[in-house]
């Protein structure tokens, strides 16, 4: 009698656990992605006064005492339960993995904003030669196989300099 009661408690406990982890994952993932996208949009608007180019030269550079300098930024964004699940389904049928594509895009946008922020903090108003590349901190599918932790690691660098204002 007692034993079956204990078994039942354990059963219910594990059932709740099994249901709640995906649920927390789905809700948490949605909320964090939504909030991140909103904050990206807001900060991108704020950063629109900085001239961002991918050119190797210095467009519209002006003479100033400030020597151009390199700026760096890096971002690692984790996948969530739902994204990983969608990607696994995609792995069966093939095709574009939208959930991971969005994750990479978020990471790139965040890195670019951090580059801009770093340039602004040092008193520059333009960055050129923006380079964004992917990194692997060991969580990738390549090195871990089945136990992979999908994540978007982006490494960015650019050169900050003084440009004449466009107005």
């Amino acid at each position: 009698m007692d034993e079956s009661f204990v078994d039942m408690i354990f059963g219910v406990f594990f059932l709740i656990l099994a249901v709640s982890i995906p649920l927390i994952g789905i809700l948490g993932g949605r909320v964090s992605e939504y909030r991140h996208l909103r904050s990206l949009e807001r900060r991108e608007e704020e950063a629109s006064d900085i001239i961002v180019t991918q050119l190797k030269s210095f467009p519209a550079a002006t003479r100033s005492d400030q020597t151009p300098t390199i700026v760096y930024a890096e971002t690692v964004i984790a996948s969530d339960y739902l994204k990983t699940f969608f990607a696994k389904i995609r792995g069966i049928f093939g095709g574009e993995v939208r959930s991971f594509q969005r994750m990479q895009e978020r990471s790139r946008r965040e890195t670019l904003l951090r580059l801009i922020k770093s340039a602004r903090e040092q008193g520059f108003n333009a960055i050129c030669n923006v380079r964004l590349e992917t990194a692997d901190v060991g969580g990738g599918a390549m090195t871990r196989g089945k136990n992979a932790m999908p994540m978007a690691c982006i490494l960015g660098s650019a050169t900050a300099y003084q440009a004449s204002s466009s107005e």
């Binding site: 994952g25 948490g28 993932g29 964090s32 971002t75 964004i77 984790a78």
Partner: peptide
């Protein structure tokens, strides 16, 4: 743990 709920992995950054 973060891979369940998503968000930035500050430790790895």
């Amino acid at each position: 743990l973060k891979n369940v709920v998503g968000g930035e992995l500050k430790g790895y950054t």
